[in-house]
Design a binder for these strands. Structure first.
Lengths: 165, 165
DNA sequence: GATTATTATCTCAGTGCTAAACTACTCTCG
DNA sequence: CGAGAGTAGTTTAGCACTGAGATAATAATC
């Protein structure tokens, strides 16, 4: 089970407020990932806010822009939202004219979301700028470091999802 | 300004839906950090939910547990919340008897939040288990990899905060 | 010492989101 | 086929959180 270190330890006689050394690095990694994510998220958020979008709205537009029309459930999986959240999100984007729902002939329960012509034109206009914003946000790491970080975060995420509860 | 690669590029003649190769890794890193964070967050969230706490509530308890009484503003900085959010959060924890407000003699605008005896006892009881949960969540990486990841995320976060808007 | 700017917290209206119940449809298997 | 289980999306109630303004106190400047 344990891949790298022991998980059972007696903590009863440590003074309150002390983190056991062997867990301190796990906690540190957790907080540092949280803070990095918060910083990236906020930088990206400020960028898309200039166009009156939330980051989640942008994420939907982006995935449709790059993958084409997608079932709502597929979008939900990509952007990690709840089913109710997707409905709400697509409603908002449809109200603004960027997205439309299309019926799915193979399964009449399901719906596609697709960019409208206006949505495509909009993304074509703003996406490159957003990509440059992201590039600036990660620019503190060298290309090799970014590669390492990407690999480590991929495995960290997978490991955390698979972790025994 | 640019530390590692060029930031200006002509994207006009790329077909819609194509990410320019030089920005693809920035985007990839962004999403992989998001997903790793989401997985860690959810794992930790499920753990504290068993005690009827949100992760933010737990974060407040944890910082008070490890640092002692703190001004509300100091907590806000530590856990990255808004001022209104801290008031709301401390209210909820006070309602449950884990935390109390104390006046600050040096500055009568400010308030301390401090764990009650019950709060200390509660954290003493549940914190070690939570630390083990975090350790399991990051267990896919070896100790050396965790160290590397921590370093990279720290610099990524700092770089993103300092990035020119 | 009075005036102004700043700071710490609280209040409150609004928002993005979730979870659970619900509707409509599809699949499975006797 | 037809009953029941399962699935895709929507609805609804409610919650954690934000941001802007209000309040009260402190610091800075004249």
């Amino acid at each position: 089970m344990s891949r790298h270190e022991p998980h059972a330890v007696n903590t009863d006689d440590l003074p309150p407020g002390q983190v056991e050394p062997q867990f301190a690095d796990a906690l540190k990694l957790f907080t540092v990932v949280s803070r990095a994510h918060a910083a990236l998220h906020q930088g990206a958020r400020e960028d898309v806010a200039r166009h009156g979008l939330t980051l989640t709205e942008f994420a939907v537009l982006e995935v449709l822009y790059h993958k084409g029309p997608l079932l709502l459930g597929a979008i939900r999986d990509k952007i990690l939202a709840s089913s109710g959240g997707i409905t709400y999100l697509v409603d908002r984007l449809a109200d603004r004219g960027f997205v439309e729902r299309r019926e799915c002939p193979e399964d009449r329960r399901a719906r596609y979301a697709a960019l409208t012509a206006e949505g495509i034109e909009f993304m074509h206009r703003i996406f490159p700028e957003h990509a440059r914003c992201l590039a600036r946000l990660v620019d503190a790491l060298s290309p090799e470091e970014r590669k390492t970080a990407t690999d480590l975060m991929k495995r960290l995420g997978k490991g955390a999802r698979d972790a025994p509860s």
